[in-house]
Design a protein around this nucleic acid. Structure first.
Lengths: 219, 219, 219, 219
DNA sequence: AATGAATGAGCCTTCATTCAT
DNA sequence: AATGAATGAAGGCTCATTCAT
């Protein structure tokens, strides 16, 4: 008889005060820890709240439901990873396509460093609930932007990529990395693996440059 | 999946009689239908049994637990897909690498036709429970075998692939296709998409041929 | 992440076997006892299941939710009460309107005998969830039928009642009795109270007989 | 209403300052609006506070608990209704019993106009918590007083009513009106319905006059 | 006087699995 | 071999209420 209402907001209240912000951070951190320690199976709202050192009620004050919490965590980690990529790109001395691609690949491979299980769990959860698109969108945008930048800059060697091309290069690369994470492949952080990822992207982009193919768009 | 015990045998009894085989088939079919209709959320053992037209007790007579059922379904679908690829490979007139790659890509893209949601759900479920490796193994073996076959045949142009290379080419390709499935991309079955997948694989394999790199293994 | 589906059936399975019927009866009886002992506040599904001597899962096998259980209980008690009224009507020696009215009033006053608190709780719950109309419908039909029967029989003294008249006589009478129950009035089962209820109904029906007024319908 | 503790005082502080009085009024108004908009299910202390534009802490500064708030609201609405009846009675030209009864009935039927849902919710809530008696007391007193006034005035035709008689006439009348409200009967505000209510009360009072019966009290 | 973040007991409900028939 | 009623651990979530600021 508990009435079921609830507006579909992802977060219930916007933390305006510092205490609230701390609380949200604590919950997110607790969630990551629980995921890292016990995987998706251990990820219960009660467990997260306890680990975060807050009451279950407080958790629900900031996250509409278990899903929203997971999504928020995924989003946060994604932002961190993207920031890392951006930083890697800026700090990269090698201005060639290969240099840039390697920087990006390395950043993605080492993202979530020290939290492989949490990363895996987040990926699984996101896939399992179908919000993958939403989370991949910024990545695709990022890559498209990077591609466009290269393509139009003084080092321009790359034509603008079509929708399908952006999709394929991003998903193929990340898909291989993701698979290595999910399957817990031992070579995930090996140089050989990184080399192959780079080879894949560079070869593909090279092939496009040689023969751009039909349907070109930047979007 | 709440209570998880040890499942030493995946299937409890090997169906030797025709009736039993029919029952198993019915359950598997029911499972696929449930998945197709309602996704992973609707996939409960009771629902599957009901849809299959058998009692829940009977379901447990053939499958140790929910997991085993899911695994069996995934395996069945995988075998079907692999068989399709094999058939495509055999029927392919074009013996070049590109021809073979295209045949494989096309087969994978169109696999599970008419059952996208079930396919998606199976993929999600397999990922979510971490048996991905087990299921990808035959694919990797298949690709390695195909590569070896090409590499040693009269059309030999391809060196034996390293472990990482097999991994990258298979996961990258399938990863892109899988992403298109999971994200329900409209261009999934378009020619442009297929072209890009082929371009990706061919470019990568070409790059390997030009410079095989270190660490070569077939496993 | 627990998916919320569920068809809006009131009962989940129709008890076909005797064991099931017994289980349903046990649950209903447990519900009545819990209500009687602790009122609506104590009426939790877990408490009912425990009192009934079944597991909570079993309870939910037969009742879609807490509400459905409450409704089923109300319906059962209503039927019992109506049956009592019918029996009282049949067994009544006095064929006058007053005799019949008194028999009905007495039956309603003494319905749920020994279970005043349960009755109160059921009434409250039904009111609180707005299913009152549904449950009153058979009563109104019953009264209308009884009125019509008297009105057309050999003892005919009563004109057919209009919709409003049926409503007023039934709700006024039952309303007074219900109020006495809800307020736990000490005179609920006194002769004086019964007399006044009878007086009310008889006077009203007498007034209608003397001047039927507008709009006559049996419905 | 989950955790229920003892509430010795209904209101924590008597509003002596105008600001406090405004706050109380705002809360009460917010409560009525919440009830009107979402029924009992939406009636949470947090929701009321928010709607009222005050913090939950402030709400608890003026009302000991949720119950007290509900009771205060009911009392306010009851007073308003009673005032309306009183006004109707004073303004009524027709000094006969029927005239007075009709005036009262009309006032009750049209009370709370435009806030049927809130009225319904208040009624339900009051019933659900068992404070019905307390709230009906002034009504009974009012009617008894009205009866006594008629009975002793120059138009005296009514004997003093017994406890049971006051109860029956008030609850029967209000019960029928309340039922029409709760069941949302279309004829609620029709002349026919009003006529029947009046007929009921007048016939009953007439019958009492003709034969007062035993046990007379004014209390 | 007011605020609102935090609390936490406890409720409803699901669903994988068992076992007597 | 099959049935399906029964089980019960476990988990998501609500909301009245408090108290430090």
């Amino acid at each position: 008889m508990a009435a079921r209402r609830q507006a579909p907001e992802v977060k219930r209240r916007i933390p305006r005060q510092s205490r609230a912000a701390e609380t949200v951070a604590a919950i997110l951190e607790g969630a990551a820890q629980i995921l890292e320690a016990g995987g998706l199976a251990a990820f219960t709202t009660n467990a997260v709240a306890e680990r975060a050192g807050v009451s279950i009620g407080t958790l629900y004050q900031y996250f509409a439901d278990k899903n929203a919490l997971l999504l928020a965590l995924a989003r946060r980690e994604m932002e961190v990873a993207l920031a890392e990529v951006g930083r890697a790109l800026k700090g990269e001395a090698d201005p060639t396509i290969e240099g840039r691609v390697r920087a990006m690949a390395r950043a993605m491979i080492h993202a979530f460093r020290g939290r492989q299980r949490a990363r895996k769990a987040v990926v699984q959860a996101i896939l399992a609930q179908g919000s993958g698109i939403e989370l991949m969108a910024p990545v695709a945008a990022f890559i498209a932007a990077a591609g466009a930048q290269v393509g139009s800059g003084p080092l321009a060697v790359l034509p603008a990529l079509s929708r399908e091309q952006v999709f394929v290069v991003s998903r193929a690369t990340l898909g291989a990395i993701r698979a290595a994470v999910l399957e817990e492949q031992p070579f995930l952080r090996s140089r050989a693996f990184e080399d192959e990822i780079v080879r894949l992207a560079v070869a593909y982009l090279g092939a496009i440059t040689a023969d751009p193919g039909r349907s070109r768009t930047t979007a």
